[in-house]
Write a protein that binds this DNA or RNA. Sequence first.
DNA 1: GTCTATATCGAGATAGAC
DNA 2: GTCTATCTCGATATAGAC
Lengths: 196, 196
Amino acid sequence: MYAGGVNTPDRLIESTRELLWERGYVGTSPKAIQQHAGAGQGSMYHHFRGKPDLALAAINRTAEEMRAKAETEFTGPGSAIERITAYLRRERDVLKGCPIGRLTQDPDVMADRVLRQPVEQTLAWLRAQLAAILTDGRKRGEFDATLDPTATAATIVAVLQGGYVLARAARSTDPFEQAVNGILTLLAGHSPKRTP
Amino acid sequence: MYAGGVNTPDRLIESTRELLWERGYVGTSPKAIQQHAGAGQGSMYHHFRGKPDLALAAINRTAEEMRAKAETEFTGPGSAIERITAYLRRERDVLKGCPIGRLTQDPDVMADRVLRQPVEQTLAWLRAQLAAILTDGRKRGEFDATLDPTATAATIVAVLQGGYVLARAARSTDPFEQAVNGILTLLAGHSPKRTP
DNA sequence: GTCTATATCGAGATAGAC
DNA sequence: GTCTATCTCGATATAGAC
C-alpha cells in the first residue's frame, strides 16, 4: 500500500514498478496494482488507459532512475577501473535482480515496440558508457592494447545481469559477488604494469 | 504441433518445454500446451496431475539435456581455456536465451521448492564444473596464481546468462558475442606466459 | 486413454452513477 | 476523480461418458 507516491497516479506508477520488478508484466494484474496502490478500479482507468499504458510509465521511470544512478558513478572521480569498481560494487538489491533486465524475459513486453524501447535503450546506453570509460582508461595507460572496449563493456554488463540470475537461482548474493570479483580481477590483470 | 514427441505424454512434455522457454511458467497455460501438443484436455489431465506436475517433467528434462551438452565440452580434449572456449562458443539459440536461467525470473517457479530445485542445481553444477576446469588449468600453468577459480567460474556463467539478456534486449546476437569475446580476451591475459 | 460438459475464479476492461 | 455494476474471456481444473 501507498507505494511511495503522493497522489493517485504516482502511487499507481510506483506500485506498478514494484510489481513489475517482482512478478514481471505477465504476472502483474491491474487488480493487484490497484490493491497495492490503494486505488479503486475506476480510479486507475481514469488516469491510465490500461495495463500497457501504466506499465510504460513505470518502465520509463525505472529506466530513468537507473541511468541517473549509473551516471553518478560513471562521471565520478578516479581512474577508469575505480569508476567501474564503484559501479559494480554499488549497494544493490541483488536477490531482486535488475528491474530492466528482467523485462527481456517478458514476452508481452518484448512483443510491444513501445514497451520494449526503454529496455533496449537503457542496456545499450550502459554498454556505450562503459565502453567510453574503458577507451578513456586505455588512453591513460590503465589497460594494455589488447583490451577491446566495446567487447569488454558488453562483458561487464553481462556479468551484472548474469550475476543476478545466479544469485536468484542460489537464493544467495554469493555468486553475484564472486562474479563481480572475478571480472575485476581479470580486468586488473590487463594492466600493462603487471609483472607476470 | 507434434513437438518432437512420440507418444502423448512425451509430446506434452516437449510442448511444455518449448512454451516455458518462450513464455515462462506464468505465461504458459494448460490450454496452450494442449493445443501445441495436439492433445485434448482430458488427455493431459490423465497423464499429469496439472500444470506444476507437467512443468516439473519439462524442467527436469531440459536441465538434464543442458548438463549432458555441457559435459561433452567440459570433458572434451584440449587445455582448460580450449574447453571453456568450446563451451562458450558452442552453437546456441542466443535470442531465445537460456531455458533454465529464464526460470529464475518466474515468481511461481521460484516460490515452489520442487520446481526451483533443478534450476538451482543446474546452475550450481555449471559453476562447480567450470571451477574444476580452471583449477586444473592453473595447475598446468595456464593461468597465474591470482586467478580465483570459484570467482572466475561464476563470472563465466554470468557472462553467458547476461549475454542472453543483452542479446534479447538488442534483438541481436552481437552483444552476446562481444561479451564472450571480452571474457575470453581477459582470460587469455591471465596467462603467465604473457609479456606485457 | 480420450472426449465433452461443467464449474470457479481472475484478468482486463467499459459504463454510468455519484 | 472515484465508486460500483456489469461484461467477456481465459486459466485451471473436475466429472463422467465413451
